[in-house]
């Protein structure tokens, strides 16, 4: 464990806590893409299939449980909670995310570390996570004004993978035979997708203005 990876995990955790706060405090999920939440639930379920078979550390197991449970809770809340689900922007959240799932699955079958069930699921989860934010970014562009908590949620979610890239660079130079090139390339793509969001987020912070993405 290094400081970059720990900071990345904490940033990821903060993003989930901010989203839970937004939904709990406002009893609303307006501006949140349910499709992105469903993709993230799939990412965690596919990536953490080894949670019961391979023990890495208490920290690792606890964080996996927290990520899976919180994301499933958010999806359930957006689908089932009679107050929250009324505020879901159903007509704006129209990204065809099934294509993202299909493309990630095909790519995982073609490019993986080993042709085993677990490794292909892992590669699938890495590719899917890289594009999982797309429905959310499209929704933000369509919904005009973005409320603070939603903006912070997306910001922390984007920042965490950027910190992971620093972690991979650090591990590359400090650990012999360390190679996580699938995660690294995918992580670069994932972080790049946030580039324009980061730009407008910085502008809104600098000008102390409301975050607004151009349509």
């Amino acid at each position: 464990m290094n400081i970059f990876r720990f900071a990345g995990d904490m940033t990821h955790l903060i993003s989930i806590l901010v989203l839970l706060l937004k939904i709990y405090a406002t009893k609303s999920c307006s501006g949140i893409s349910r499709k992105t939440q469903e993709l993230y639930a799939l990412v965690f379920l596919a990536r953490y299939v080894d949670i019961f078979t391979e023990f890495i550390s208490v920290y690792n197991t606890i964080m996996k449980i927290v990520f899976i449970a919180s994301t499933l809770a958010i999806v359930w809340c957006m689908r089932g909670h009679r107050v929250v689900r009324r505020s879901y922007d159903k007509e704006l959240d129209t990204f065809r995310h099934y294509f993202l799932i299909a493309a990630s699955l095909v790519l995982a079958l073609l490019v993986h570390e080993k042709f085993t069930f677990q490794e292909i699921l892992w590669a699938f989860s890495i590719y899917l996570e890289a594009v999982a934010i797309l429905p959310q970014l499209v929704l933000l562009q369509r919904s005009g004004n973005v409320d603070n908590l939603t903006g912070q949620y997306v910001f922390f979610l984007g920042a965490y993978r950027g910190l992971y890239i620093l972690n991979w660079i650090y591990r590359y130079f400090t650990e012999p035979h360390f190679s996580r090139w699938i995660a690294c390339v995918s992580g670069l793509v994932q972080t790049a997708l946030y580039a324009d969001f980061f730009y407008y987020y910085f502008l809104s912070w600098k000008n102390n203005a409301k975050l607004k993405l151009p349509a």
Binding site: D9, H12, R47, E54, I56, M63, K64, K114, E119, N167
Partner: peptide
């Protein structure tokens, strides 16, 4: 040590 290629990251 863990088996090679084990995924120790989240």
């Amino acid at each position: 040590t863990r088996k090679e290629g084990s995924k120790d990251e989240l």
